[in-house]
Design a protein around this nucleic acid. Structure first.
Lengths: 210, 210
DNA sequence: TAGATTGTTAATCGATTAACAATC
DNA sequence: TAGATTGTTAATCGATTAACAATC
């Protein structure tokens, strides 16, 4: 079950709702789709449809109980079940993601980092960073679901191949490189450059209007 | 002119093309939409339409001259014209973006960083990081287009307000907070949590199929 | 001419929005 | 009852895909 069909767009809105709901003061116990829509600048009907997909706690006149809605969304997203990840890349970058609270909260359990330019293991806050050579020996004992790639461009594809070989089912790609993977592997690419360009184009459009 | 209408999706594909083309070996002088589509796992017709929107260099049988196509895309995206940005947030995070080459290449000219938890200015590689108090005095001399927010959640909205007051026309938001801004301000939010959840859901779907 | 390619026009698909009925 | 809200059905919009004509 749980096979409610969900669009990518809806999926991206879910964490936004969750974040908004969690930030509400404790004194607010009920919330309507209308209010959420207005607060987040979204379409009222979109929000209502989204919420209806993940919760049946909606009551006429009252809306949803905040607590229940948070729970329903979390259940739907299944953030409580942890999945394992390792990060490969530059030590400083790794350090930031390793200690990023949001990752934990989304159910991502980052086990360790691996830096190609480091020769000794070191402790970055709570988690360890090892030399890249140790990737294989570390992973064989572990069940790795997600491999995070923050490597230099030239190493990205090779690192990707290694992670896939070690059993990663998904690759979270922070490099601008297009990664070639077997068909059954999920690739999620973050594209900082595309974000900058999107902003620039929007700025330009607004400038043209005025 | 230049008012070719462009969808958000297309805009996101553009930097991907650019990156792919730039990575091609020098020996390849011509490339077809078909080949690009195959290499990047995109629809053939999509790519052809995208390219047709930004370039008229397509030749039957030959495709596009790589050099020309790169040029046409760059022109379309207008990455050569620089726009100014400042970053506010944690020093270590700032440092990474400050020295990120991709930002420069996309025409983003980051002037400086501002850290609420630092009391003295320091030099992070090429650029300076100042105490947050100095944001106003620094910006009044400068023409700021984009304000980048990497602050702790609690400070995000306040920092946003300050940046808007100082003339930022766009806010690049790396916090999970929904920012309230005047209507004419562009907000681009990066949502790490949404990315994790998207990956997780895709993994789950694949698991269900098999 | 045949084949590879471009670019366009029409068809399909999916997401958002509008309209409305149902309920407390 | 009136009003706020939910949730659904139909209409609109936009993007992708399919089919095809044009060209070198």
């Amino acid at each position: 079950m749980s096979s409610v069909k969900i669009s990518n767009n809806m999926l991206e809105r879910m964490p936004v709702y969750l974040n908004y709901l969690n930030a509400l003061p404790k004194s607010i116990t009920n919330i309507s789709a209308t209010k959420i829509a207005k607060a987040l600048g979204l379409g009222e009907v979109s929000v209502r449809k989204d919420l209806a997909k993940v919760s049946d706690g909606g009551r006429c006149k009252l809306g949803y109980r905040c607590e229940d809605l948070i729970n329903d969304i979390e259940n739907f997203l299944d953030v409580k079940s942890k999945i394992n990840a390792v990060i490969v890349g530059d030590g400083e970058l790794i350090k930031i993601l390793l200690n990023y609270q949001g990752a934990e909260n989304s159910g991502l359990n980052i086990l360790a980092g691996f830096d190609s330019s480091c020769t000794k293991q070191w402790n970055s806050g709570e988690k360890m960073i090892y030399p890249l050579e140790q990737l294989e020996s570390f992973c064989t004992d572990q069940d790795i679901n997600i491999g995070v790639i923050m490597s230099p461009i030239k190493e990205a594809q090779e690192v990707c191949d290694r992670l896939v070989r070690l059993g990663a089912k998904a690759i979270w790609n922070f490099t601008p490189v297009h990664l070639n993977v077997p068909e059954h592997i999920v690739v999620q690419s973050e594209n900082i450059t595309a974000s900058i360009i999107k902003m620039r184009m929007q700025l330009k459009e607004k400038a043209e209007v005025s």
